[in-house]
């Protein structure tokens, strides 16, 4: 799993787009945001297209501790 979740990518992307759509943005800053937006778009697409579902089985030990192990599918 990537560190940044899809939700975070999407939230940030939406914020970037909203900023770009405002008129009072400095051009340098706009270019910076655009760059970041492109990176995040790519990341979001990759998450959607290339993720593979992970399944973990959760077990509670007698002492109440919880552990989990991957499940092969």
């Amino acid at each position: 799993m990537t560190n940044v979740s899809f939700r975070e990518e999407l939230d940030r992307l939406e914020a970037i787009v909203r900023s770009l759509e405002r008129d009072d943005l400095d051009l340098d800053r706009a270019l910076e945001l655009f760059q970041e937006g492109v990176t995040r778009l790519r990341a979001a697409r990759e998450l959607l297209e290339q993720s593979e579902l992970t399944v973990r089985r959760v077990l509670e030990a007698a002492d109440g501790t919880i552990r989990s192990e991957p499940v092969d599918r």
Binding site: I16, V17, S19, L20, D23, L27
Partner: peptide
């Protein structure tokens, strides 16, 4: 459903590009 989410991302991509275009136009 990720199949339904991809167009959403596509829409953001368009808005991003359009946003920049608009910014540069203003610039």
């Amino acid at each position: 459903d990720r199949a339904a989410v991809l167009p959403l991302v596509g829409g953001l991509a368009r808005r991003l590009a359009h946003g920049l275009e608009r910014r540069t136009e203003l610039g």
